[in-house]
């Protein structure tokens, strides 16, 4: 295993049951994700992108194969150990943000710290520091439904980074945003999320932001067909 590998995935196979038949969505994927880089996973709809990153971040069990995250074989952990591993090491950014509607932006951003047992006051203070970096500290006391989509996604980014995880995982972070706010959110994400000791995986369709990637993995029918710093010519 490579020294600077954040994720080391070997022989990942994932089957889904569809009625009587079994569909193989991932056909034995071997790949490493490195710290200090922003890795994009791209590919057509249904190619298995979400399935792959779900397995890589410990929320979906592979049918076969092994995933090491920072040297830990995560699927050999017990359920509770795995949940705590995620809490301590992984930040999530969802397409639908999934913010809690009845608490304000700062409290939403502070959720991982609160889940770790930090008191609300200090947790919010830390979250507000991060909201400042994301240029929305003036929105800290607003409820999610009082924010624009781009602002909500920035709160979600703050939530993903507030506890300083070593791995950040995003699935279609810009899909619900218009082109310009999507671009701005991704610029910011690149600014705050990329660090020498942190890995960042982003699943996206959005070809307007491909230029922000350090590395691009292309998935076709559950196989990695391209791995490089740029998109292949035919895409």
């Amino acid at each position: 295993m490579n020294a600077e590998s954040a994720i080391c995935a070997r022989g990942i196979i994932r089957d889904f049951q569809a009625g009587q038949s079994t569909i193989r969505v991932l056909h034995g994927i071997d790949t490493d994700i490195r710290s200090g880089e922003m890795t994009y996973v791209v590919g057509e709809s249904g190619s298995g992108k979400t399935t792959l990153i779900s397995i890589m971040c410990g929320i979906l069990w592979p049918t076969e194969g092994e995933v090491q995250v920072f040297g830990t074989d995560i699927y050999s952990l017990s359920d509770t150990e795995l949940v705590n591993f995620r809490l301590n090491n992984i930040g999530f950014i969802f397409q639908q943000y999934n913010l809690i509607p009845s608490i304000d932006a700062a409290s939403n951003a502070a959720v991982p710290l609160i889940a770790k047992g930090m008191a609300i006051g200090p947790a919010r203070e830390k979250a507000i520091e991060l909201l400042e970096k994301l240029n929305i500290s003036d929105q800290a006391n607003k409820l999610p439904n009082q924010l624009s989509g781009g602002q909500q996604q920035r709160v979600a980014i703050a939530r993903a980074l507030v506890h300083e995880p070593r791995l950040v995982v995003c699935d279609e972070p810009t899909a619900a945003l218009d082109a310009s706010s999507g671009r701005r959110v991704m610029d910011l994400l690149r600014e705050v999320a990329v660090a020498p000791d942190r890995a960042c995986i982003i699943v996206t369709h959005d070809n307007r932001i491909f230029d922000l990637a350090d590395r691009i993995l292309v998935l076709e029918d559950g196989r990695v067909t391209h791995d490089g710093t740029d998109m292949p010519e035919d895409h």
Binding site: I59, V83, R86, F92, N98
Partner: peptide, 15 residues
């Protein structure tokens, strides 16, 4: 709130 609960579970809130 199921989405929010799901997000909490993913983030690392135990059952």
């Amino acid at each position: 709130n199921i989405k929010q609960f799901g997000a909490l579970k993913a983030i690392g809130v135990t059952n």
